[in-house]
Every structure is written in C-alpha cells, then in structure tokens.
Amino acid sequence: MICSKCSEKAVFLEPKLCKKHFIDYFEKKVLDTIKKFKLLNKKDRVVVACSGGKDSTTVLYLLKKFHGNVVALAIDEGIKGYRDKTLVDLKKFCKDNDIKLQIYFFEKEFGKTLDIMLKKKNYPCSVCGTFRRYLLNKCAKGFHKIATGHNMDDEAQAVLMNLLKSNTDLLLHSVPITSKRKGFVQRMKPLYFCSEKEVAAYALLKGFDVGFTECPYMEESFRNVVRNSLNNYEKEKKGSKRNILEKHLKLINDIKISRKSFQYCSICGEPSQSDVCKACELIKSFK
C-alpha cells in the first residue's frame, strides 16, 4: 500500500499516508483546530494537564513546538502500579524536552491516596474525577489556559454519556475550548478532531516513550461501555465519532442550554454549585 502523496509505503490507511506525510497531516490537523477555534493567543501562559500517556504527551510536545513556553502539570492520585509508572515516562519526557513539570498529590492535598479512598467508597471515576478537576483548576490559577489531551474518541464518548445520563448542561464542556468564567481557568483541547488511533500512531511514529497503561479501575466505568459501543458504530459506519462531534457543536450553538449557576465554596473558596463544593464534601466524608 503506497502513500497517496508520494511513493513511500503507507503506515496509515485513513488517510493513506507514509510516515512523513502522516506526521505532517496530524500536526496540520492540530494546528487547524488551534486556529479555527482560537485556542491560543500569543501571550497566553499555558499549562498542559499531563498523565504521561500518549494524548497529553502529544499535546505537550506540539504546544511546546507551536507556542513555546508551556508548563506540564501532573496529578498523582495514588493508583499503585499505574500512575507511578506513567509518571516515570512523563518525568523523562519533560527532562529530555526541557519542560518544567509540577506534580500534585492526592495524599498531600486530600490526606489519602485514591487506592485508600476507594476502600470506603466504590465509585472510582466519580471520586477521582471530582478531585482531579478540583485540583487542576486550583493549581492552574495564574495560567491563561489549561490544555488537555482529550481526543475525538474521548469527546464523542462524553457527548453520548451526557445524553444518556441527561446531563444537558455538561454538554457545554465537550467543546474545543470552554468559555471564560470567573473562578475557572479556560480549558482547551487541541486533539479535539484527532481520533485515538491517529494520536497513538503519531506518538509511536515520533518515538514518544509512552507504554501501554490502563487504569485498573477502568473496567468498572460506564465510559468503557460507551467506548465499546462507539467503536462498534465506527466500524459499521466510518465517521460516526466525527459526525457526533460536528452535530453536537452545531446543536449547542443553535439551542440555548442554560448553565447551572455557581457560587464559591464556603470552605475552600473554589467555584461550586452549592455552599460546599463536591471536593470538600468528599473530603469530609472520608474523615
């Protein structure tokens, strides 16, 4: 199978491209998303939320290349045999690429590792997600934007999950860049239109040292059910994931979805939908 742009052997099928042209295609796709949705201003101070996996490492590499000065921010939830491994890769990547890395720990910030927390409450993704979102927003204060490694698969899954759970206001989060709101650092997703397979191929072809890792709590999540369904839809009907996102962006632009109002948590001062934020409520429940 030959590349559609030259006579080299293709390494990717859709689109049919050799290594050099696939890398060019992928980087252009990310740059086009950054330009089209105005993800970056020249003077933005940007922090990249990093896990050490292929997606966030790719974002870190490309923003360093396109924008220059970026800082990596990692959260160590305390998941033994998983996060400790991915952070080894991330530390090496940051050192090799001269990128400043800041790591925050659940144990230090909330008094317990996630592994310990889950002995008391058995809904891993909810507990982890609440604390990760809280810490990310809190620790990114002082930066203009938080860049995350969410790819097209992640976003199509999120749209479908929020529809299935009837979380209409959360649909507003599945966008290439979140709107400006007091108390929140804007979040942007440069890989919004890149499929998981494209990101994995790019990371492999660039030689990023990101081994296969899977969160040990993943099987228990609803996301896993939705991920499998979407992969089956995509197999039967190519373009399903992209179609979901394109229609989703059009719909949330056309219809008015009211956001839940927020106040500030009386304990920590972070934005919250009630007097005490979810993170502080969880911390109390673990005491």
Binding site: K54, D55, C125, C128, D153, L204, T213, E214, C215, M218
Partner: peptide, 8 residues
C-alpha cells in the same frame, strides 16, 4: 498488536 486505548 498495540492497543490505542490507554488511560482511564
């Protein structure tokens, strides 16, 4: 055969 799905 490498998995493209990683993370959580």
């Amino acid at each position: 055969i490498l998995s493209v799905i990683s993370g959580g």
